[in-house]
Every structure is written in structure tokens, then in C-alpha cells.
Simulated assay, not measured.
Amino acid sequence: MSNVDAQFEQAQVDVKALSEKPGNMTLLRLYALFKQATEGDVHGDKPGFADIVGKYKYDAWASLKGTGQDVAKQQYTELVESLKNGTAS
């Protein structure tokens, strides 16, 4: 297991232990980075108008198209660290 993979796995544990729930935009970013890191580029049909949350999630993930999985893992880890330290914007 690479160092990036180990840090990514630890970040997944750490994010569940945050003292405060992140805001919706940060949650979308975490979701998109996680999906990009674990599954690669977005796939499947975009949810319809009635599924607002699904549409936002899809769009957030699609915005990372072309981002390498290791890069997404690193960005996810960095975002979780900034949330832990209280420095996330």
C-alpha cells in the first residue's frame, strides 16, 4: 500500500470524527474527491430534475473529470486535514 493510499484511508476515518459537520459545499467537495479517488471519472446518467441532491453530487464529481485518482486522494486528505485543523475555507 502506498503512502497516499494509507493517508487516504486515515482521512476517511478522520472525517467521521470531526467535531463539527462541514458545510454543504465542503461535503460536496469531499464526496466528489472520494468518488474520483475510488472510481475515477464520473459515469452513469445525470440524475433528473426531481433528484436535486443527486444532480449536485453528479455535477461536483463531473467537475473533477480527468483528475488522477492519486491526485484526488491527496486532495481529499489535504481537505480533511484542513477541516481537522480548522483552516478549511
Rank of each mutant, 00 (worst) to 15 (best):
V53T: 09
R29D: 14
A17S: 14
Q36P: 08
Q10C: 03
T87I: 08
K35A: 10
G66R: 07
A72Q: 03
Y31H: 15
F49C: 01
S19C: 01
Q12A: 01
K65R: 14
A17G: 02
A37T: 04
E9L: 13
A62M: 12
K46V: 02
F49E: 11
A11F: 01
E39L: 13
V80E: 03
E39T: 12
D14I: 01
T87N: 08
W61S: 04
G86Q: 11
D45F: 07
T38M: 11
A60K: 02
T38L: 06
A88T: 05
F34G: 10
R29Y: 00
W61M: 02
T87E: 12
L33R: 06
D59K: 12
M1N: 05
L27Q: 15
E9A: 15
E39W: 00
P22H: 10
K21R: 14
Q69L: 05
L30N: 06
V15Q: 13
A37H: 03
T26R: 05
D59N: 13
Q74V: 06
M1T: 11
D59I: 07
A6K: 15
F34W: 13
Q74I: 06
K16T: 13
G66T: 10
T38K: 09
E9D: 13
V71P: 00
Q36I: 03
D41V: 05
Q10V: 08
L27V: 12
M25S: 12
K65M: 06
G66I: 08
M1C: 07
E81L: 09
Q74A: 14
T77W: 07
D59Q: 08
V15E: 12
L64H: 06
A11R: 08
V13A: 10
K35I: 00
V80L: 03
S2Y: 02
A72N: 06
R29K: 15
E78S: 11
G48N: 10
Q7M: 11
L28W: 00
A32E: 08
D41A: 04
I52R: 13
H43I: 07
Q7R: 15
F49S: 11
A32P: 11
V42N: 01
D51F: 09
M1K: 04
Q74D: 13
A72G: 01
F8G: 07
G68I: 04
V4W: 03
N24H: 11
G44N: 10
K55S: 14
K46M: 12
A32V: 08
L28E: 05
Q12W: 01
E81K: 15
S63W: 02
H43Y: 13
P22K: 09
Y76L: 04
K16P: 01
E9S: 13
K21G: 02
K16D: 13
T26H: 04
K57G: 00
D59H: 02
A11Y: 10
K57A: 01
S63F: 01
D14A: 15
D45E: 15
N24I: 07
G40L: 01
A17P: 00
A72C: 09
K35L: 10
T87R: 09
Q69D: 10
K46R: 15
N85K: 15
D51I: 04
S89K: 11
H43R: 14
W61E: 05
G66Q: 10
L18Q: 06
S19T: 15
V71W: 01
L30G: 07
G40H: 09
Y58F: 14
K16M: 13
E20C: 02
V53F: 00
Y76A: 03
A50P: 00
S82N: 08
G23R: 07
G40E: 09
G23V: 08
G48W: 03
